[in-house]
């Protein structure tokens, strides 16, 4: 074994951590893509022109 399994100290944290962790160990994009789309829609809806300016800033970012 390369590393010991994570133990967050209290079962209240360790149990949900292990349940969530499973989704990120295999095929994380199944969750990442919908989360990102929802996040992006939320950002544009909440911040409007600021979000659009952020995109312009990032596009000049390379």
């Amino acid at each position: 074994m390369v590393v010991e399994p994570n133990d967050l100290g209290i079962p209240f944290l360790t149990i949900p951590y292990r349940k969530i962790n499973v989704f990120f160990k295999t095929a994380p994009f199944i969750f990442i893509v919908p989360l990102s789309i929802l996040g992006a829609i939320g950002l544009v809806y909440l911040f409007g022109i600021l979000a659009v300016r952020l995109v312009s800033l990032l596009q000049y970012g390379f």
Partner: peptide, 9 residues
């Protein structure tokens, strides 16, 4: 903008 932010996120 939505597409680009989602892609970047």
């Amino acid at each position: 903008s939505i597409f680009y932010i989602a892609f970047s996120m």
